[in-house]
Write a protein that binds this DNA or RNA. Sequence first.
DNA 1: TTATAATTGATATTCGAAAATCATTGGATT
DNA 2: AATCCAATGATTTTCGAATATCAATTATAA
Lengths: 232, 232
Amino acid sequence: MTITKSLEGDGKTLMASVYDRLRADIVDGVRRPGAKLRFDELKETYGVGLSPLREALTRLAAEKLVVLEEHKGFRVAPISRSDLHDLLFMRQEVEMLGIRRSIERGDDQWEAAIVAAIHALGKRVNLTPDGHIDPEWELRHRAFHDSLVAACGSPRLLLLRAQLTDHADRYRRLSHYYHSAGRDHLSEHVALSEAVVSRQAELAERLIRAHLARTVEIILSCEDLQGDGFDD
Amino acid sequence: MTITKSLEGDGKTLMASVYDRLRADIVDGVRRPGAKLRFDELKETYGVGLSPLREALTRLAAEKLVVLEEHKGFRVAPISRSDLHDLLFMRQEVEMLGIRRSIERGDDQWEAAIVAAIHALGKRVNLTPDGHIDPEWELRHRAFHDSLVAACGSPRLLLLRAQLTDHADRYRRLSHYYHSAGRDHLSEHVALSEAVVSRQAELAERLIRAHLARTVEIILSCEDLQGDGFDD
DNA sequence: TTATAATTGATATTCGAAAATCATTGGATT
DNA sequence: AATCCAATGATTTTCGAATATCAATTATAA
């Protein structure tokens, strides 16, 4: 019960905080692809000095969410068809690998977590009555997909997968994905969960592959992206 | 003509330069795993201020070559058996994927570049008469392996692969890999090149898998690593 | 008019000092 | 003797000013 003096409440460094907020703004599409990131403006909006800003931007540049041109500053990473294709390719391979390995190594607890996650997901619909995405559904959706690969046992694979997911989320939100989604999510997810839990690796791989490809097709079909240099 | 004062001549930013040197020192093992990276010392040795140093370290942290503990500073990333296993796993999968895809998509020029690379590699032996690694051989070795995956067409895969290669190089140099190498490198590489050029994907995948596994076995067999907390 | 050079303004980069945090030592209390 | 608290020192984190670079505009010459 040490009355440790730490009562500021965050403990997080300024750079970590501005990194989180900046990344969220980019992934959410608030910062448009290709948009210039000027320090004066950033200093203003996030209320921090140059040092934490530069550090946060450097970190984001390493993850390819922003690009740095020497002596010209930072920009939000551009988007393109070819990049989206490359992203899909990597996601298919990485998800397949994560699922295959988890099937090989996962125990009963891993199986149980998947069953729990798909159950929780089924209790929600992806759209609220007024046509917006249910944030709680999005959380459970991500938790479900995480549960599938949770037993793969590879920190590097999981880190890479998390980064790819961020990129994919940005594309999905930049398009108006959910507006055109009459698609039956739940049955796809149920089929996937059953294939994984019953350890049918080949089937699961086919399903996740198709699942990811389908979302990209939908993204490409809503051509809301043209305004951001999406002409490659 | 412009007597502009800019006569330093590099064009590279200070942070880029210190990033390169710092990364080289870490990969070469000059900076030992787990070693503290204090700013006073770094400022001294690299002759730059805090800002470019922090930025370079942040970038290296994103690549997992250094780790950042908040308010405690930066350290060289530790090494461990489990991390080495994870690295091997990822390298096997990524190399396999890159080769498989290159076999699917590569053209005659790609094939020709491989033939050229293996030929150049065969003209050198890996060790100089006095028992050191021939730097020119190392260059050609890397060029050969690069040539195998050069036609995969995925920027993300190539970037990931480059990062994994850096990590692997660090482990190899931290161990005294080449001291214990009576191993026949050339025949392995020749077999690999022939499998790839003749588009035998399954054989090539088996070979690259074994090739990577063998180097890790050698690294683990020279137990020069114990001094750096390699007890996980 | 066109093209080249110089100037200005805007912006990114870097440095050195100030503020905040962590680790360690020494002293007081039980 | 052991434990907890306070104070010191070392180090990181952050800020604001100075420097260097880039981009756009004006001026000059062909």
